[in-house]
């Protein structure tokens, strides 16, 4: 889906060699992407480099380096190259977060901004295990300025959609939490198929108590899964939150053959 558009990756799928762009709309988006990126780096012992106004809470403070965004470019390049080389020798990957919003605000800041961007691109492309996110406050720059900077990046990074899927034993089924939309259909389809393949023929339960959103495509996907397994009993939707129940009832259970309402949500 959307394969013709510019590349867009959720933060958990960034890989070394990726030089990604984040033009955040608000603090929430900025925080969600940055924290997920840094947390994954801390967990795997990566070297973390913060360039410009990036404040994060990290557990391994000794593995984090902070540099000002307005450092003189050749000095900046030397420092960054040395950091990457040191990490490389220690067998560590590098995660770089640059916030160059300050440069966007400078009058005629574009040339020096692009110089820094190209420096980062060289660093990421040099063959060591470096992953970089360049983030900008979308509100701080004119659209043409943002477009010029964006063009330096091969991809855009977005926050991870949150969907939790857990197997349940008694009753047999899945517990879903978070938000379920087209970005996660494949994952649900996979989990559900493997569950149904080894089910004993009894009803399969989906516990939706923690699910905050379900899209219409997912209702179709569940109905299709039930239809493919006619002798395996219905899919029972347990503990459906009120707001989801209202949507399902607007559709009507009769349009969802093979799905059944189960036990009510504890909240009513």
């Amino acid at each position: 889906m959307g394969s013709r558009g510019p590349l867009c990756r959720p933060v958990s799928e960034l890989k070394p060699g990726d030089h990604a762009w984040l033009a955040y709309r608000d603090e929430d988006e900025r925080r969600r992407v940055t924290e997920a990126f840094i947390a994954a780096g801390s967990a795997s012992g990566d070297r973390i480099i913060l360039l410009g106004d990036v404040r994060v809470e990290t557990t391994g403070e000794d593995r984090t380096t902070s540099l000002p965004w307005d450092a003189e470019p050749s000095a900046l390049e030397r420092t960054l190259t040395a950091e990457v080389a040191a990490a490389d020798r220690a067998g560590r990957s590098v995660r770089l977060v640059a916030d160059l919003t300050g440069a966007l605000r400078e009058p005629d800041g574009l040339p020096s901004l692009l110089e820094r961007e190209r420096l980062i691109a060289r660093l990421v492309g040099a063959g060591s295990a470096v992953t970089a996110i360049c983030r900008f406050d979308r509100r701080a720059g004119a659209p043409d300025l943002l477009a010029a900077v964006r063009a330096e990046h091969a991809m855009r990074v977005v926050a991870d959609p949150v969907l939790r899927i857990d197997r349940t034993r008694d009753p047999t089924g899945l517990a879903l939490g978070g938000e379920l939309d087209a970005s996660r259909h494949a994952e649900l389809h996979r989990e559900l198929s493997s569950l149904l393949a080894c089910s004993d023929g009894g009803p399969v339960h989906l516990d939706l108590a923690e699910l905050e959103f379900i899209d219409l495509g997912a209702l179709g996907l569940l109905t299709a899964a039930a239809a493919r397994h006619p002798r395996r009993g219905p899919l029972v939707l347990d503990r459906v939150p009120e707001r989801l129940r209202a949507i399902i009832e607007a559709v009507g259970w009769d349009k969802l053959p093979g799905l059944r309402p189960g036990v009510p949500h504890p909240g009513g």
Binding site: M1, G2, C8, P161, D181, A182, S183, F213
Partner: peptide
């Protein structure tokens, strides 16, 4: 207005 280009941005649209 909010541009969007992939399913990973649907939550932002919401």
């Amino acid at each position: 207005r909010l541009p969007f280009e992939s399913a990973f941005e649907l939550y932002q649209v919401r």
